[in-house]
Amino acid sequence: MTEKHEYRMEELARLAGITVRTLRFYRERKLIPPPRREGRIAWYDDHHLARLRTIAALLERGHTLNGIAELADAFDHGRDVGDLLGLGEPTEETPVRLTPEELAARFEGEVTPENLAAAMELGYLGTDGDELVHISHRLLEVSSALVREGIPLGEVLQAGVRVREHADALAELFADLILRHAPEPELHRLRPLARSVVEAELSLALDRRMRKGSNSD
């Protein structure tokens, strides 16, 4: 069982690398949940520390405090983080709920505030209370498999950004093609055909890439 740590305000600020004044500001902006009160003493825990480190990583990535506050509000009130990030409810992907400990076990040594912020920015990861929610079981399995093969999680997430760009372009291509010849409701029915084309073309592209590598030896 993981030991629970609690901190006074000064200690929490020191561990998070911020000033007490900044911590008070974040609390007033509701960027972190209220502390546990014991008389006049406020006690913070590891969830507050993790939130502060994630805020720092998001700020480094160019997010505004208003945007972070919106995410924090969604996390604290159980709103659908996928909807908040504009992803909507996945129709074929299965979300996965994880404890922070389970996520750390899957990506040993790779669960840093920077990687968490990148996963949140991609829309892969959100929180619901004390649980983490990954938007896709398949993407979670592939990501953890790549990390087990020795590929840093940060690079996996960077590749995810590029894959997302290409996937969006392919989705637009097939949607435009289908909608030029069929009504909107047919888009969902014909979706498996588009997916099969992409899977086949990617397989052929990997064949060409492997042949290219073997020919250069």
Rank of each mutant, 00 (worst) to 15 (best):
H5Q: 14
H5F: 11
E6F: 13
E11M: 09
L15D: 13
A16W: 11
A16C: 12
A16S: 12
I18A: 03
I18N: 11
T19C: 10
T19K: 10
T19A: 11
T22Q: 15
T22E: 14
F25D: 15
R27V: 00
E28Y: 06
R29Q: 08
P33V: 06
P35A: 07
R36L: 06
E38P: 00
E38T: 05
E38Y: 01
G39N: 08
R40E: 04
I41D: 05
I41S: 06
W43S: 09
D46F: 05
D46C: 08
A50M: 10
A50I: 01
R51L: 06
L52M: 00
L52K: 01
T54S: 02
E60K: 15
R61K: 15
H63I: 00
T64Y: 04
L65A: 04
N66G: 08
I68Q: 10
L71T: 03
A72K: 04
A74V: 07
A74K: 01
G78K: 03
G78D: 02
R79V: 05
D80F: 04
D83W: 08
D83T: 10
L84Y: 03
L85V: 05
G88P: 14
G88Y: 03
T91Y: 02
E92W: 02
E93Y: 00
T94Y: 00
T94G: 00
P95W: 03
P95L: 02
L98M: 08
T99D: 09
T99M: 10
A105N: 09
A105L: 12
E108I: 05
E108Q: 12
A117Y: 05
A117M: 05
A119L: 09
M120L: 15
L122Q: 13
G123S: 11
G123Y: 09
L125S: 01
L125I: 01
L125N: 03
L125E: 02
L125R: 01
G126K: 04
G126F: 03
D128C: 02
D128R: 04
D128I: 02
G129A: 12
V133C: 05
H134R: 00
I135A: 10
S136K: 01
L139C: 00
L140C: 06
E141H: 07
V142S: 07
V142Y: 07
S143C: 10
S143T: 14
S143E: 12
S144I: 06
V147Y: 02
R148D: 15
I151K: 02
I151S: 00
I151A: 04
G154E: 13
V156H: 02
V156L: 02
L157F: 13
Q158Y: 07
Q158D: 15
V161E: 15
R162D: 04
V163G: 02
R164I: 01
H166P: 00
D168F: 05
D168C: 07
A169I: 01
A169M: 09
L170H: 06
E172R: 15
E172W: 07
L177T: 14
I178N: 06
H181N: 13
P183S: 06
P185F: 05
E186I: 10
H188Y: 04
R189S: 11
R189Y: 07
R191I: 00
R191H: 07
R195L: 13
S196K: 12
V197F: 15
V198D: 11
E199Q: 14
E199F: 03
E201S: 08
E201K: 07
S203N: 08
L204N: 08
A205G: 12
D207F: 13
R208F: 06
R209D: 03
R211L: 15
K212D: 09
